[in-house]
Design a protein around this nucleic acid. Sequence first.
DNA 1: ATGAAAGCGCTAACAT
DNA 2: ATGTTAGCGCTTTCAT
Lengths: 318, 318
Amino acid sequence: MSITIKDLARETGLTAATISAYFNGASVRPYNKEKIEKAIEKLGYIRNDYARALRTHRSMTVGVLIPELANTFCTQLVTEIEEALRLKRYGLIICDCRSNPEREREAVRFLQSKTVDGIIIIPATDSASSLSSALAKSLPVVAMDRYTESREISHVVVSNRKAGRNAVEDMLDRGFRKIAAIHGEESLFTARERLAGYREAMAGTGFSLTALGGNSVQGGYEAAKMLLSSRPDLQGIFATNYEMSIGVAIALKEMGKAIDDSFAFTGFDSVKMLPVLCPGMRMVVQPMHELGAVAAETLLAMIDGGPVRNIVLDCSLV
Amino acid sequence: MSITIKDLARETGLTAATISAYFNGASVRPYNKEKIEKAIEKLGYIRNDYARALRTHRSMTVGVLIPELANTFCTQLVTEIEEALRLKRYGLIICDCRSNPEREREAVRFLQSKTVDGIIIIPATDSASSLSSALAKSLPVVAMDRYTESREISHVVVSNRKAGRNAVEDMLDRGFRKIAAIHGEESLFTARERLAGYREAMAGTGFSLTALGGNSVQGGYEAAKMLLSSRPDLQGIFATNYEMSIGVAIALKEMGKAIDDSFAFTGFDSVKMLPVLCPGMRMVVQPMHELGAVAAETLLAMIDGGPVRNIVLDCSLV
DNA sequence: ATGAAAGCGCTAACAT
DNA sequence: ATGTTAGCGCTTTCAT
């Protein structure tokens, strides 16, 4: 079938154990080392991770489980995680579950059947129930973006409420008063928290106006149009996620509403798109790089027996 | 360590071989079947794919290798592929290589070390050299989106040139004459072909105007602004990929240029964004679902000893 | 520094 | 229908 360590043994006249030793950094006579390397090259040997993992109970790969591959936030995060793990010589198996808890559960089992050393998940719901099979085996798990109710897994999230509060306070500080929020379903942890931040900031002003944008471009667009036409006195909009921010920006452009002394717009996350779509606006940006790095680091620490950690990172306003 | 087939054997009083037979669909006494299922449930058994693959030389997983996780086209395609493979009970390992040939090569080896049964790749370059280690082991490979020079791998692509030609001919048919193309680097197969389609369609008109948009939102935006301001007589724009189409749409909106009898815009692929950003425009859309399905099907056929196939699918104009 | 031998969890003859 | 046995490719004592 495939080239194995035995083929290398035959080729070099050494034994499988020596070849293995070579791969695992034990000392090998320079002369033999050279022979081994030549044989690897010649035969195109690639180590079989399955066999290795079977023996060592370490696969040097971690599973990353996200709700949607189509979601920019998720893929950005995965990219950062990958970057961080690759430095530690860990591989990645990426799964998505189409925001479907049933599939999420399946995916966890898939990852376990590949004997990953740990899982980083952006949970599709606030529940950790799809992780039960992993937790039963005390497989290390790090959840990102939202909290689950589980105490056995680490969490790496941003301070959504504070980010929302800061964003709105910044608008207030600049003299805008009548600010509306366009938010996602309150069943979502992040949407709920960011909206709570808006409410905290607005509490003193006596003004409050919120519209559901369903976390979609279309939803944000429609909500913005609705708000702007029904409330011509509106002085600002705060949108609580990427997609809705895009929708709002499109609506503003379409209605000829400029970002100036009389109107402010603060969106979320849309670093690439928004600056060209809507110059002058402000944005809450999540520390993607740090999120990925910290999640990776936390997971690896757990794999090495480290404790569960709950880490909250701050967003910045740009 | 983990729960193994032996634990099931002990729990049920049967032998490992019987449990294995159960998993592989052989006939097992109903009474024992029930006992096995109960034990699986009780112990939370998850089959170890590594051990299984080690024995069977089939991992029931395929590798999917894409240039960028951040690229919508890629992730959409992966989603479709996943959908198709899941029906055949195949799992997926997704890798991205940041459009870096060196990483692509590494990723291929990573996938091989996981003994995937085959690879579906959206190549980062026109070369198949990063696949050499896979081809050396005659691992089935399907390339998507662009051709490579290799005859050992299957290709599933769209008729880019024809799509470009059709798109532009459609504009010509509607009476627009002075049509410009905003295209990507000609080193890219798809960009080159789509531009060639534009040229073929425009050949009879005596008009030709092209601008490089670098396949980015920003690039498309700038190219459109440049074209529109330098050529006020322009009657249409054809943008040859997703990102540039978005950029063009933003530019049009910003310049107050409407899609009407005097101006046409045809973009590429942006099914979700463009309709809200720029109603009335036309779009070339690639048959994502079919692409994914055909690629999956072709790969599975190859895994079962089927031949190399080169498949070209048509795009539609919406 | 290298070899011999056992075993990781599973499947595949073969025997019963 | 089930048990016995051997072995997939690798690592890991334990000898040498």
